[in-house]
Simulated scan of single mutants.
Amino acid sequence: MKNFSFFFRFIILVSACTCLWLNAGTPEKELKIFRKLSQKLQSVKTITYRYTQEFTYPAEDYHSKSEGSIYIDFNKEYDLAGFRYQYKDQNGFSVFNNSGFFETSAADRTIHIKNKMKAADFEGLSALYNSIITLRNILPTVIKDEHIEKHVKDTLMGKKHFYLLNFKVQDRFPNYLGTDFTATTEKITFYNKLIVDRKSFLPVSFIQLKKGSRDINRTEFSDIVLHPVPPAEDSWYYSTYLKEYTPEERNPVKIIDVGQSAPDFTLDKSKTRGKVRLHEFKGEVVLLEFWIKNCSYCINAVPELNKLNNRYDPSKFKLLAVNTTDSRSSIDQFIIRHKVNYEVLSGDEAVNKNYGISAFPQIVLIDKKGAVIYSGDLNIAVLYPLISANL
């Protein structure tokens, strides 16, 4: 299928959708189009397509684009997740064979192997983000949910007509598999837009926008082939590649355990440009939040952390957000843009290693004596009573 410039496509979307959300309720003829797309995707047994992902966050000065090709087999025997797939891009390739997962690195000729996959392990796999798999699984939920506003318009790109399917979702977005929605920690309206080929009734583009934001997530599907020639059977097994690739030894990074002494550090303050040592806060409860700027979960965490910081006496409680990854100017912009009201620290990357940080955001709560009393994800329901009990 022909690729159209994203700018041209976005102008069409804006002009076509200006008045989409004026009426609640979806006419039956438009619901039929949603159902037809869902039925089409449910009928797919095997498929290949060219996959283009683009993320544009002007406020964060961030832009990323990646491309690859994917083969998906939805055979009923693949009961663990309902499919198996092979994905390839310039960095290497990855394979999920219904039980295990492996991925190669073209740069160092290594292969990483994970023998048993759980549903949570699929989150973060770029080949699945807003993919055909996502749409195949999430559309039945979208269609059934009367609280999700749905509309269909006709749109013209070049000289060709397409359907433009729109659904608006409040405070949640599809997970990678499309088996459910992931809730946000703040109020966000997501505008989801699907451009569908009127002849094949397959999606050519999936675009996500946020109300009041210029952020754009775009996925394009091109060169779609149904019932393609399948990959060789031995290509599904990592043992096939062991002559070409060396198994990678990954020592799993584990966040610091409860009961351990919090490692001391010296970092730079963003607000006052001074230095600060963790040791200075002995006798106070300290919450460390480890974060990076290009992380939607980190952005969504700010309002909750602001509330938490305002709740306690600053002479007894300190909230310190640690970012050892981004530049000082990027951190300063983040603080202003998202109205951060707590102290933000930057500097030595060894801090993340010492605390076992491998994902963001992560929380470490330290008591008055310097011992870790909580480590893990941001869980406000757990943190509030724990902080109060230790002040």
Rank of each mutant, 00 (worst) to 15 (best):
M1V: 06
K2E: 14
S5V: 01
F7N: 03
F10C: 00
I11C: 10
I12V: 14
S15T: 11
A16R: 06
L20E: 12
N23G: 13
N23W: 12
P27F: 07
E28P: 07
R35S: 04
K40L: 04
L41K: 02
I47L: 08
T48H: 04
Y49H: 06
R50P: 08
Y51T: 06
Y51P: 03
D61L: 13
K65G: 05
S66G: 08
E67F: 11
E67H: 09
D73I: 02
L80M: 13
Q86T: 06
Q86G: 05
F93T: 02
V95N: 05
F96Y: 15
N97E: 04
N98M: 03
G100D: 02
F102P: 00
I111C: 00
K114E: 01
N115R: 01
L125C: 00
A127K: 01
L128G: 00
N130I: 00
N130P: 01
E146V: 08
H147P: 01
K150H: 12
D154W: 08
L164V: 05
K168G: 05
V169I: 04
R172P: 06
P174V: 02
D180S: 11
A183F: 09
A183G: 10
I188M: 09
K193E: 09
V196L: 02
V196C: 01
F201A: 02
F201R: 01
V204Y: 01
Q208W: 03
Q208H: 08
L209E: 02
S213R: 07
R214P: 02
D215S: 05
H227S: 14
P228R: 02
V229D: 13
P231G: 07
A232W: 09
T240E: 04
Y241N: 06
K243P: 07
K243N: 14
T246K: 05
T246V: 11
T246M: 05
E249A: 14
R250C: 02
P252Q: 14
G259C: 11
S261K: 15
A262C: 13
G274Q: 14
R277M: 15
E289P: 01
A301K: 07
P303R: 04
L305Y: 04
N309I: 05
S315R: 12
F317R: 10
D326Y: 12
S330M: 11
S330P: 05
V340D: 13
L345C: 15
I357E: 10
I357V: 15
A359Q: 12
Q362T: 10
V364E: 04
I373T: 03
S375A: 15
L383I: 10
Y384L: 07
L386F: 08
A389R: 13
N390R: 07
L391P: 10
